[in-house]
Amino acid sequence: MTIDWANFTPGTALAGGALLGFAAVLLLVFNGRIAGISGIAGGLLQAGARGDKAWRLAFVLGLVAAPVLYRVFAALPEISIEADWLVLVVAGLLVGFGSRYGSGCTSGHGVCGLSRLSPRSLVATLTFMAAGFAAVYVVRHLLA
């Protein structure tokens, strides 16, 4: 393993991470909800209480509006999507279905679950991390 020092950004990583943790705590303290993005977004597609939809949609719109607001104050950091269109569609389907079937993603299991020391979320986090490492290894080092 070689460390990519040129792209290592410890300062912004820690600052951004702290913001994520803080946001998750705010949602719990004010709304009593876990900030799990797949659960919040996926809940929009569930048949359920209608009064449950507005806050979900508002949260999703907040995420979508973030780069728009960010741009008002600073240039957006570089965004580069390497995957081609077909891979993106397959990846999107897997991310959407998998995160709902596994009851969470990087935010719900990763940030919130680990923060509350949930063994279930620890298993989920280790599983999706391992699968992510494996997928990148196959794509970049076996198939390339």
């Binding site: 979508v64 999507i81 891979v87 279905f97 993603c105 794509v139």
Partner: peptide, 28 residues
């Protein structure tokens, strides 16, 4: 479901480098 779902999610995450939160900010 926890393990299989997480594994499928992780494979998708590794294929594109995008998980649900960043996907929605990318939309913006």
């Amino acid at each position: 479901p926890l393990v299989i779902g997480s594994a499928l999610f992780g494979i998708g995450w590794g294929l594109a480098g995008i998980c649900p939160g960043p996907a929605l900010t990318l939309l913006g």
